[in-house]
Structure formats: structure tokens, C-alpha cells
Design a protein around this nucleic acid. Structure first.
Lengths: 250, 250
DNA sequence: GTCCGACCGTGGTCAGACCAATAAGCACGA
DNA sequence: TCGTGCTTATTGGTCTGACCACGGTCGGAC
């Protein structure tokens, strides 16, 4: 059952056309009195009320749609939704398409977020968080020779850390980079699988991180995580310059 | 003089209407062969080529516009632009409009980003960075009784830290929260101005941070910055529960 | 009371028209 | 030949009106 939201007065912002409609709807959404699930007036009504043609209303609604703020349902109407983090995924995808050598830089953001998250997790994690982390940890060893599944397992472990932080903002930012991070995880797992020396690193390091969180030691957790990243970087460096020997056949 | 980009073949994605056009343009942008400044074909041509009506093309272009990916110039055409970080500001503004008590959580992201940034700054800052930081530092004392200007000065100092990190990604994320952070800075400066005990904190703490960066000590810089945030939180807590005395009249 | 058909409402899209404004091209005059 | 003025073409901005698809609701008939 939808609540129909009465939009009764056009705001006079000196704008007209698309800008007027977009600003009007944006203001309503920002005012916070439209809640997810609320349905806006039909396009034809909005057009009359705002004194514009229907295609202009549609342009504005489309714009809000790609921002993840509303959803246009065919033959139903336009429904307010929670801000959709996948918008940010697109943003980063586009930014990266236009840049060079950004992946390493995104790693800085990853480090920033995860190190803060693990501090918070050590302070705030719930039993459910520990269970999630434990389950993710258990998936690391069996996937040691499968870069795709292994990347998934790695990502899940780290994402569980962020979740255990209890910080929605950190989670949003982390999820915004999900695709980039997954690509990075796959690449790293491929590199590590090609060289056999580092299985203990992967399994033991993740276990140590888990332990630090469980033992509620934010400083140690942060430090171990930074070391975890630094060791990963070192392996990558060695692989790049040929200091590592390929694994004997598995 | 614009480069006209020939879009010669519609991708068959099984979609139609808006989705078809949006996906097509999105793919072209993601392919990375459209550069900022490039001009897309006129709307009428795109409509013919893609076999849709012009309002549908417009909807798709509008969508790309609000994502900051292109700019529709009246009577000129649609021009590719660099991804615009202000999109993210809107995202956070909307997210906050729909949530309660998010500002404190955004602070976690701020801490994450700045602490990583100051580590990188201590390692990477250039002379120009030091000059920017120094100039921002010099603006803190004279604005001590002016919450608006003071907030600006505070923000500038911290933004300079992020810039000195040399990490574009950290800068993007930080700028995404610029409006939220400015609001937070204003509020903090107002609170601190109402209570006079903390002028030394503001001026001296920022100076210490600057010093740690100049002396290229990432660990100390990180620690001092965390303490800086913790002290700010403590002042806020005391103000909230009435433990601080209002300042004698200035 | 149940089922079926018709109608209404809503978004999705199309076609065609008009407007505004700038830039480019052409013609004419000095 | 060059400069100026006028006209035309181009492009986005918007409007109007029409049609389509389809789901939901209501009313009527059995």
C-alpha cells in the first residue's frame, strides 16, 4: 500500500524547465519528509503543478533515478528509495576509466578505511560479527589455489571487518570501491598462487587479524593490518622484479 | 575547436528505450576512448542512430549529466567532462537527510581518511605542500572568535593534509564529504567559541600536526591526529553534559 | 460469491512543432 | 580585397498531443 505524497506548491527558485523540476524534487528529498517507499505524484500531475511539459518531468525523474534516490516503476509511479551505494561504484568505475595507474592509489583508501574499521571492530564487534569473520576466515585455506574463489573469500573477510566496525559510512565508502577491490584481490591471488611461498602468510595473517579483533585490541589490530598490507605489497614487489620462484607444481 | 566523435554503431544489448541509450553511452564512456572535452553527436543524430526518439536521448544525457560525466551545453552539444566529485556530496547529503545521527559516523570516515593521509603526507609532502599547510595554520589563530571563518580555516588545514598525501583517491573521498565536514567544523568552532578554555588546544594542536609532517614522522603524525580528534570529542562531550564553563566575555 | 470483461491510470515512447541564440556563410559596398 | 550586415543553419530546450502496454479495480452477469 503506497502513501501518496501530496506535492502542493511549486517552489519558486527562478529556475525553469529541467532545473526547476530537479531542484524542486531534490529539495523535497533533502527535506527528509519523503521516506523510502513513498510514491511521488504521477508525472502528468507533476507537469501541471510545476508548469512544465511531461518529458521535462521525466528527465528530472530519470536524473534522480540514476542517483539512486528514486525508482521509476512502470505503470505504478515513482517511488522514493534509500540512497543506493551502487551509484558510487559507477562513479569510481568512470573515474578509473579516465585515469591511469589508479589501482594503487585506491589501495590507500582501502588501507584508510580498513584500518579505522578494524579499530572500531575491536571495540564494537558483536557475536554475530565474530561468527561472520570466523566463517570468512574458514574459507581462505580451501580456496588457496583458486584465484577467483580465493579473491571472493579474501574480500568477504575484509568486508566483514568493515561491517564489524558498525560504521555505515565506512561500509558505504568501502562498498563504493567493491569492484575495484575485487579486481585487485583476484590479481593478488593469481600472483600469490603462481608462487607457493606465501600460503602461510595468507592463512596465518588473517587468523592473527581475527584474533586481535576478538581480543579487543584496536592498536594491535591496526598495526597487524598495516603489516598485512605491507607484506602483500612486498610479495608483489618481489614477484614484479623476479625475486620469487614459481611454485612447484601443486 | 571541438573534436566530433563519431558514434557509428549501436550496441545490441537487448535493451531498448532509455536503458539502451544509457547503456550505450555508459559503455562508450567506460571504454575510456572519450576524453574530457570531446563532444558527442547531436541529440537528433543519436536518436536516429539508436532508433529512439529524441526525448529518450535527452533522458539518457540528463542522467549522465547529474552523474557529472558529461555537460549539456545549450546550442553547442553534449561534452564529456571529468567525473565530478560534487555528485558524491549530493549522495551524502541525501543519505544524511534520510538517516539520523549520521554526522558522528561520517567522522569515522574522516578519521580514516585523514589518518592515512597524514601518514602519506609525512612521507610524500612537497615544499608546496608545506607552504600550503603553513598558510592554513597561520589562519587558525586570527579566526579564533569567528566560527564561520574559523571553520573555513580548520577545513583548509585538514584538506591541505589530505592534499599533501598525494593520493587522488583519498582527496576524492574527502571532497565527497566536504559539505558535511564544513557543517561539522562550524558547529565545533561555535561550541569551542562559547567556551574559552580551548584556544591553546586549537592553535597548538594544529601546529604539532604540522611539525610532525614537516619532520616526516608518519607514526607520530598519525598518533597526534588521533589524539587531536579524541580531544575535540572530549570537549564536545563536556560541553554536552555541562562540565565546561562559558567563556568570560571576550 | 466468483469470474470475466471493460475501463482507467500510469509510465514508456513517438512524432512534430516551435523557440532561443550563436556561429558561419554569403553578398554587397567601399 | 576586405569589412560589415544579413540570412540561414545548427543545436539544445521545451511543448503538445498521440499511442502503446499492462496491471489493477470495478461492475455486471451467471
Amino acid at each position: 500500500m503506497h502513501d501518496r505524497i501530496e506535492i502542493t506548491r511549486a517552489e519558486d527558485a527562478g529556475a525553469k524547465g529541467f532545473e526547476k523540476v530537479f531542484a524542486f524534487l531534490r529539495a523535497r528529498l533533502l527535506a527528509g519528509d519523503l521516506k523510502p517507499g513513498d510514491r511521488l505524484l504521477p508525472e502528468r500531475e507533476l507537469a501541471v503543478i510545476l508548469g512544465v511539459s511531461r518529458p521535462i518531468v521525466r528527465e528530472a525523474l530519470r536524473a534522480l533515478t540514476v542517483l539512486g534516490l528514486v525508482e521509476i516503476k512502470d505503470r505504478v509511479g515513482t517511488v522514493v528509495r534509500r540512497p543506493d551505494v551502487s551509484v558510487l561504484n559507477d562513479f569510481f568505475a568512470f573515474a578509473i576509466a579516465q585515469a591511469t595507474d589508479v589501482v594503487d592509489d585506491v589501495m590507500q583508501a582501502r588501507i584508510a578505511i580498513e584500518c579505522q574499521a578494524i579499530r572500531l571492530a575491536a571495540a564494537r564487534a558483536t557475536i554475530a560479527d565474530f561468527e561472520r569473520l570466523g566463517a570468512a576466515l574458514a574459507r581462505i585455506a580451501p580456496t588457496i589455489h583458486d584465484p577467483e574463489a580465493g579473491a571472493r573469500a579474501d574480500y568477504d573477510f575484509h568486508r566483514s571487518l568493515v561491517r564489524a566496525s558498525g560504521s555505515e559510512t565506512l561500509a558505504v565508502l568501502y562498498d563504493a570501491m567493491a569492484e575495484v577491490l575485487m579486481t585487485s584481490h583476484v590479481g593478488r591471488r593469481r600472483t600469490l598462487d603462481a608462487f607457493g611461498e606465501i600460503r602461510t602468510y595468507l592463512i596465518e595473517d588473517h587468523r592473527r587479524l581475527f584474533q586481535a579483533v576478538v581480543e579487543r585490541d584496536p592498536e594491535r589490530a591496526d598495526r597487524l593490518l598495516r603489516e598485512h598490507f605491507a607484506i602483500g605489497d612486498e610479495f608483489r614487489r618481489k614477484a614484479a622484479i623476479g625475486e620469487m620462484r614459481p611454485a612447484a607444481s601443486a
